[in-house]
Design a protein around this nucleic acid. Structure first.
Length: 864
RNA sequence: GCGGGAGUGGCGGAAUGGUAGACGCUCCGGACUUAGGAUCCGGUGGGGAUUUCCCCGUGAGGGUUCAAGUCCCUCCUCCCGCACCA
């Protein structure tokens, strides 16, 4: 019997498949397509188990669909721009491009070793001009349509490094690189007007219902954050102008006892100027900026600065004080709010602190609220009081009526607001796609001409110790001529946020044309992506940006669909248990003795076994895919990963678990190998599989039941763990059956045909998960062609039906016995039989039968 | 605080309202062996009776039902996301 030599088998078939180009896909209008896409990786150096899981899940889906007759597009590429390349350059003195491309080469080899069914001809590397030139084109077209614009905003700024920091580069209010306290700074930058699509992005989430995880849909809804309210004008006599506030509770207008502005609000500045509070306000702004983080986390106390003037409530005509307050956000609504302490907790706290009046205008049905007795704001709906002609109305109706009244008086209007902000795409980074804009001394902002694209990112640069982008200092790059007037001009030196590249790569995969971003007919054939797979961490940003780009490209006339990803699967993390020594902190499993002591430096302290956590170097719980492939082979790694948990749950890596998967494949290999010679020439004529002996019929039935189960689990439920369990169960049953049969039984021709069917179909079922071993055994068994090109087995429905079943006999809902009975047994017969069973008699005797429930094919329940 | 998800053996996890614990791991026993961390066979939720029997058991409590892990109500715990968004 031959050994399962996985490394030889895997190498052999990977070469064959590559040579034969079995995974290539080209548009073919005669065949149905299926586009399977996994989120492409950032080329950080090596792939990790999270990637292995993501790509294994995608590969299984792609292979199942191929076997079901679809023309499957399954591509892979590299999200190759990004900050880590610059950090590597800083640390190791290697150029970001060299670092990136060598990482890509290494990781590509790793993916190939895992046997993924990618059409590598379609590989994309986003840091090449071939790719990003089209991104620049889209940007210019967006600019021309007013969808890209330049504005000043507040950014995180590290005063030491003199650089802008992304939110995720700020750790506890400090710069991640140098630890300096981060401040905010106003800076100019480019923005994409995603807010113009807020309503459509929200509405179209309904189309994804049932196809995307509910969680992701909810997260996006919250992120877009639609709220319906009103803008209301409060006249400010001191300035003789209106202050416009935004509120979702116009019904509480009569309870407004003050108004609050964001400290950065224009009117706050004007009023401060007028009242001689300029210094105080600036001090306040500075303080609020510093506390920004604490404020965002809700840790800072509410604080305000009275601007020594008043605003007029448009309906009551009351004069109420104006404050600048730290809890009012400039970026949301109008940056100004009316404050109703009785019905808003934040206003309540502020009012208590500054001794401002609290007036109840909404009251629940059953009791009367008194302002002086309130311990917190009453925020629920209720009935209006103290509100003139609106008193007595239910708050929901009052909202409409008060808005109507304000509109009639031109003092306010209904207003929809979104939490979603425009997408800031400027990065003061080197390793990114250049923003194709020129600043002309005469013409101002001018987009580069389309025919001059790409604006190539210069590679002849030195990354210096400050980590600052070298682009602004590259005279050759910066100095240019104006595309419009030909005069002197300077290039934009910011680059795009890397989320821009990943917002359209799925389109490029379908049509890698050298001259066009993509050909329309290719897009029409392959898109949208049928199944997208990736981590939940991209639930909001990437997926929202990609949805936005899809809609923009649609409106620019490139494509004709609304949503890029038909179905979405978000896989869980790969986690592993951790070990912690009281002296050494996190330690590797190898550093723990068999009796749980720390072996590091002869330490000997008792090691704490921590709960499983996401794999990370710092926690010493990383498992290297290369090592696993070397030890067990790609098929075993894939099998374990698909088997250990359903895709959406976290997967706990287990060294014992992978041994189990390895054992299963060894068992499969030796079993089929031992019959291979005998069965190779046997022709699989299913029509001869009639009048089988009981045991063989049972085996065949079990096979077809397994095919059905695997079909459902692999193609519909995407629960590969239970599908694989069914295959394992079948193999167990097969081995039991083989043990029971005599050598003579197996010499029978029919038995041989059946065995051939059983083996061939088992291999077909397992091949999406473990393609190499299945291809090898397929060849040994004399299978036709390549298993990777074979059809998924179908089941014979007539075979599924059992002639008998095990009837569960219950008395008062408790199982008392079970007995094998004909499948078509009647209720009467079943009852008669049940009552004759001694174990049942025991519980029924001497009692009267009140009811009998009979479930065909299942059970009988006798109620006494 | 708001939103989402989950609580099932020693562990990962199975169960269209119909035998709870499939499949795998671990552990225990046995076989083969110079050896076993290879392989094969058997057992493995808890408690009691000890051969084939009974009771208990899906986070807690209640309800609907002939029948509940599954449906309904109340509560507890954990995880994730968002969070002064007016």
């Amino acid at each position: 019997m031959s050994e399962y030599n996985f490394s030889q088998i895997e190498k052999k078939w990977q070469e064959v498949w590559e040579k034969e180009g079995v995974y290539h896909s080209d548009p073919d209008p005669k065949r149905p397509k299926y586009y399977v896409l996994e989120m492409f990786p950032y080329p950080s150096g090596r792939i990790h188990m999270g990637h292995v899981r993501n790509y294994t899940l995608g590969d299984i889906i792609a292979r199942v669909k191929r076997m079901k007759g679809y023309n499957v597009l399954h591509p892979m590429g590299w999200d190759a721009f990004g900050l880590p390349a610059e950090n590597a350059a800083l640390k190791h003195g290697v150029h970001p491009a060299d670092w990136t491309f060598s990482n890509i080469a290494y990781m590509k080899a790793q993916l190939k070793k895992l046997g993924f069914s990618y059409d590598w001809r379609r590989e994309i590397t986003t840091c090449t001009p071939d790719y990003y030139r089209f991104e620049q084109k889209f940007f210019i077209e967006m600019y021309e349509r007013g969808l890209a614009y330049r504005k000043k905003t507040l950014v995180n700024w590290c005063p030491k490094d003199q650089t802008v920091l992304a939110n995720e580069q700020v750790e506890d209010g400090r710069c991640w690189r140098c630890g300096t306290e981060v401040t905010t700074k106003e800076m100019e930058g480019w923005f994409l007007k995603i807010t113009a699509y807020a309503e459509e992005l929200l509405q179209d989430l309904d189309k994804l219902e049932g196809k995307w995880p509910e969680k992701v849909i909810t997260m996006q809804r919250n992120w877009i954050g639609k709220s319906v309210g009103a803008e209301i004008k409060f006249f400010v006599p001191d300035l003789e102008e209106d202050l416009i506030v935004y509120t979702t509770r116009p019904d509480t207008l009569f309870g407004a006892t003050f108004v609050a502005l964001s400290p950065e609000h224009e009117m706050a500045k004007k009023l401060a100027e007028k009242k001689g509070l300029k210094a105080k306000l600036e001090e306040f702004i500075e303080k609020v900026r510093k506390e920004r983080r604490a404020i965002e986390e809700g840790r800072a106390e509410k604080e305000g600065l009275f601007l020594e003037t008043f605003a007029v409530n448009p309906l009551t005509k009351e004069h109420i004080p104006i404050f600048a307050a730290n809890f009012v956000l400039m970026e949301y609504g109008t940056g100004a709010i009316m404050c109703v302490p009785a019905h808003d907790q934040r206003d309540f706290e502020f009012a208590k602190k500054y001794g401002l009046p609290i007036r109840v205008v909404i009251t629940p049905k059953d009791k009367v609220l008194k302002a002086e007795e309130l311990e917190s704001a009453y925020e629920d709906p209720g009935i209006l009081i103290n509100s003139n002609e609106f008193s007595g109305l239910w708050s929901e109706e009052a909202k409409e009526r008060i808005i109507a009244k304000l509109e009639e008086l031109s003092l306010g209007k209904k207003k929809v607001t979104y939490r979603l902000r425009d997408w800031g795409v400027s990065r003061q980074r080197y390793w990114g796609c250049p923003i194709p804009i020129v600043y002309c001394e005469r013409c101002g902002i001018v987009p580069e001409r389309i025919e001059n694209l790409p604006v190539v990112l210069p590679l002849n640069v030195q990354i210096d110790k400050t980590g600052k982008s070298p682009l602004p200092y590259l005279e050759d790059f910066v100095n240019t001529t104006c595309p419009r007037c030909g005069g002197r001009a300077r290039r934009e030196t910011d680059t795009f946020d890397t989320f821009v590249e990943s917002s359209w790569y799925f389109l490029r995969f379908a049509s890698p044309d050298p001259e066009l971003p993509f050909r329309k007919e290719d897009i029409e054939y392959y898109l949208p992506v049928d199944q997208y797979i990736g981590g939940i961490e991209h639930a909001i940003l990437h997926l929202l940006y990609a949805r936005f780009f899809t809609k923009v490209l649609r409106d620019l006339g490139y494509i004709n669909f609304d949503e890029p990803f038909e179905k979405l699967l978000t896989q869980g993390m790969v986690i592993k248990e951790t070990y912690r020594c009281p002296v050494h902190g996190w330690i590797y499993p190898e550093e723990v003795s068999s009796d749980g002591k720390c072996l590091k430096d002869g330490c000997g302290e008792k090691v704490e076994v921590g709960k499983p956590e996401k794999m990370s170097k710092s926690k010493c719980n990383v498992v290297d895919p290369d090592e696993m492939i070397k030890k067990y082979g790609a098929d075993t790694v894939r099998l374990f990963i698909a088997f250990a948990a359903p895709p959406e749950k976290d997967l706990e890596w287990s060294d014992h678990g992978i041994e189990g998967a390895f054992r299963f494949l060894k068992r499969l290999y030796s079993l089929i190998s031992s019959y291979a010679d005998e069965l190779r020439e046997v022709e699989l004529k299913e029509e001869e599989l009639k009048e089988l002996s009981d045991k063989l019929l049972k085996l065949r039935r079990k096979l077809h039941q397994t095919i059905k189960k695997v079909h459902i689990d692999f193609e519909e439920r995407l629960h590969f763990n239970t599908g694989i369990a069914a295959i394992m169960e079948f193999l167990n049953h097969l081995q039991d059956t083989l043990k029971e049969l005599s050598p003579d039984d197996l010499k029978d021709h029919k038995a041989k045909i059946l065995l051939k069917e059983v083996f061939i179909k088992t291999l077909l079922l397992l091949s999406p998960v473990c393609p190499h071993i299945c291809e090898e055994l397929w060849e040994k068994l004399g299978g036709e062609g390549r298993i990777v090109n074979a059809k998924f087995p179908t089941f014979d429905p007539t075979l599924l039906k059992e002639e008998t079943f095990v009837l569960v006999v219950q008395v008062n809902g408790r199982v008392r016995d079970q007995v094998e009975v004909p499948a078509d047994i009647t209720k009467e017969k079943a009852l008669e039989l049940a009552l004759s069973l001694p174990k049942v008699k025991k519980f029924v005797e001497g009692k009267s039968i009140k009811n009998v429930v009979f479930v065909p094919q299942k059970l009988i329940n006798i109620v006494v």
